[in-house]
Amino acid sequence: MKDFVLLQLMKLMPTHAISRFIGSLAQRPVSRQFIPLFSRVFQIPVEEAEKSTMEYGTLNEFFTRKLREGLRPIATSPYAVVSPADGRIAAFGEIKEGQLIQAKGVTYTVWNLLGMKESEASAFEGGRFMTIYLSPRDYHRVHAPVEGQITDYSYIPGTLFPVNAFGVRAVKGLFAMNERLITFIQSSAGRVGVVKVGATVVGSVKVGYSKEAGTNIKAGTLVQRQLPSAIPVERGGELGFFEFGSTVVLVFEKGKVEFEDRIHEGLAVKMGEQIGQLNK
């Protein structure tokens, strides 16, 4: 009952406007005075940051901080599939009959997630997926799980429900409803989708390979873009970043990838560590 009431209240809130407003505030110089409080409240490991806390000009600069060089070594095996971000594994498994698991007893479809026709998403049938939740304390840059070439991307407008435990419980099909920016990588693992899911108070998602791509766009419309030329990316190469926390969903084609036996729901992972391997 409590989740139902909270969800109805959330539906009444202008979440896009609120997210843009908070994102705008976080980019103003005055916001830097909140960095120490933000760090304490969310227990952020500030010693990992590239710069000292007060060298950041705004709260947004701090939130999207880079890490000290060498702090996240990338798995070196040529067959390694690595975590694209710091976070916790919320769900993983096989894509069966086009379904991905959101939570116990709750599923959503791969074609809705990727903004494709069901026939276009057929290559992912029988493939693997993994959902990684990034909390406010985490490093918020997103990296390539495999080596390959960035070929295209999609921006799919949608809702901005929270992606925390409440959102996952209360909103069916959450990750296929919230707005998202999807980077497609062509690789030895076939076509890989790196889905960056927006959420309440996520100012936006930015990527380095396109100045036009982003999320939380006013009056947003579906955008599907083939890049003028494919952009090479190394395993662990940076794709973009979240301005405030959210979720990454990885999708792999059938028969291309297997996850490590040690993987389980709730496991904390660091960007660059091996989470699976390519089928040889």
Rank of each mutant, 00 (worst) to 15 (best):
T64G: 14
S188C: 12
G237R: 06
E260R: 01
R68K: 15
L67F: 11
I217F: 13
G237T: 05
E61S: 13
K206F: 13
Q102I: 02
T58P: 12
A49D: 14
R20V: 06
T53N: 10
V202G: 08
Q224L: 09
P29I: 11
S246A: 07
E55I: 04
E253D: 03
P78V: 09
G220M: 08
A26T: 07
G148M: 12
L9R: 12
I74V: 15
F42Y: 14
P232D: 13
I18C: 10
R68Y: 06
F21L: 09
E125G: 03
L12I: 14
M116G: 03
R72Y: 05
L9A: 15
G167E: 10
M10D: 11
T53M: 14
Q8I: 08
F21I: 12
G214L: 13
N112C: 10
V82F: 01
T58I: 08
K218S: 15
A80C: 10
V257F: 02
M271L: 14
A189R: 04
T151M: 07
M177G: 07
T221R: 12
D86E: 04
R65M: 09
S188W: 07
I22A: 09
L71C: 05
G115A: 03
Y139G: 00
A85P: 02
T200D: 13
G272C: 02
Q226H: 15
E212Q: 09
R169E: 09
G208Y: 15
T15K: 15
E50F: 14
L239F: 03
V171M: 12
V142L: 08
K2S: 13
E120A: 09
A219I: 08
E48Y: 08
D138I: 01
G87D: 00
I89W: 00
K117E: 10
Q27I: 06
I156N: 05
R169S: 08
